[in-house]
Computed example of a mutant assay.
Amino acid sequence: MLVTLNEILPDAANSNYAIPCCNVFGYEEGRAIVEAAEALKSPIILAANKDMVDFMGVEMLAKMLVSLATSSSTKVCVHLDHTYEEDIVFRAMHHGFSSVMFDGSQLSLEENIQRTKQVAQVAHSLGVSVEGEIGSVAYKEGRDHIKSINTSPEDAYRYATESGLDAMAIAIGNVHRLTTPDSVIDYNLLASITDKVTDVPLVIHGTTGIKDEDILRLKTTRVSKFNIGTSLRMAMGSNLRRLMNEEPDKFDKMYFMQKAMPFVRAEAERIIQLLR
């Protein structure tokens, strides 16, 4: 069933579990992830990132992801990930995304608050949830223009209370697109943020780069949503490469994708169980 962040994150923020937000790079991954969530009777978030939006467009992505959500026996949120342009955010809402992220992390605090608030007003009138980011979570590769700025607790408080958002991504040492768990989490900074932000669920991006023991600790705080992309891409890509090398005389894409999908499902199940 299709849901918003507001239907699944508040309880997680006030409990000792969190919800996985899985970046989807095609129907096969999306189906494998939903099957994992159904098997474990867990809510899940399917996210479309900028690369997929550029490749497919929000209309086609919405049709694919919303169909997976509405036909599922578990709660599935269809979420537009980091998006910097309001027109794309509004188009995503129009075409069926149940949640969006307006990323104003590269803007001044005042402009981030103002533009997020405008997005939130439209989104809430349509029953759509909104995520924003304060501070700036850097990328290991692929987004060289993105700054690395730890979240200021004072800025986080203002952003949470003035923007009208429903979930807030923070930067506390996490990094996008790490392939090994090298992030060093600043728990003192997190404590300062959670002391000030008591009503808005928090979000961690760059989960693949975080050690399991840190994830287990973080999920007991107000962090209620963990974004995962790299480990799922690795599960698909590495196994697809291996499988194709093992059978060089076969060329049917569906044959290989069906063989690779169980590895994506297994990784999704591992993540869900880690966050439960």
Score class of each variant (00 low, 15 high):
K225H: 06
L126V: 05
S105H: 09
Q118T: 13
N245D: 11
L40H: 08
F102I: 01
L2M: 10
S129E: 10
K211Y: 00
N49P: 06
L9S: 02
A268C: 11
G96H: 01
V100F: 12
V197Y: 10
T208S: 15
H124Y: 07
K140D: 08
D186T: 03
E269V: 01
L202K: 01
D103P: 05
A32S: 15
T161I: 00
M1A: 11
K211E: 15
K147H: 14
F226M: 13
L218K: 06
E267T: 10
M234V: 09
T161E: 15
L107T: 07
K140W: 09
M261T: 02
N245S: 13
V197Q: 03
T70M: 13
L40W: 11
A69I: 00
D199N: 13
G206S: 14
V128K: 00
S163H: 14
F263I: 00
V3N: 02
R241E: 15
H82S: 09
T74R: 06
A36W: 10
K140A: 12
T161Q: 14
T220Y: 01
Y159C: 00
T207D: 08
L46D: 06
F263G: 01
H176L: 04
T180M: 12
M60C: 06
V203I: 03
H82P: 12
F251H: 14
A12T: 09
M168H: 08
E133H: 07
C22D: 05
T83H: 05
Y84M: 08
P20S: 01
Y255I: 02
S129A: 06
G164S: 03
L68S: 12
I193L: 07
S108L: 08
P181M: 07
G237R: 10
A120L: 05
N150R: 00
H124L: 02
I272P: 04
H145F: 11
I45G: 03
L165T: 05
L2H: 04
V122S: 03
D54N: 15
E267P: 05
M64Q: 14
P10R: 13
I172F: 10
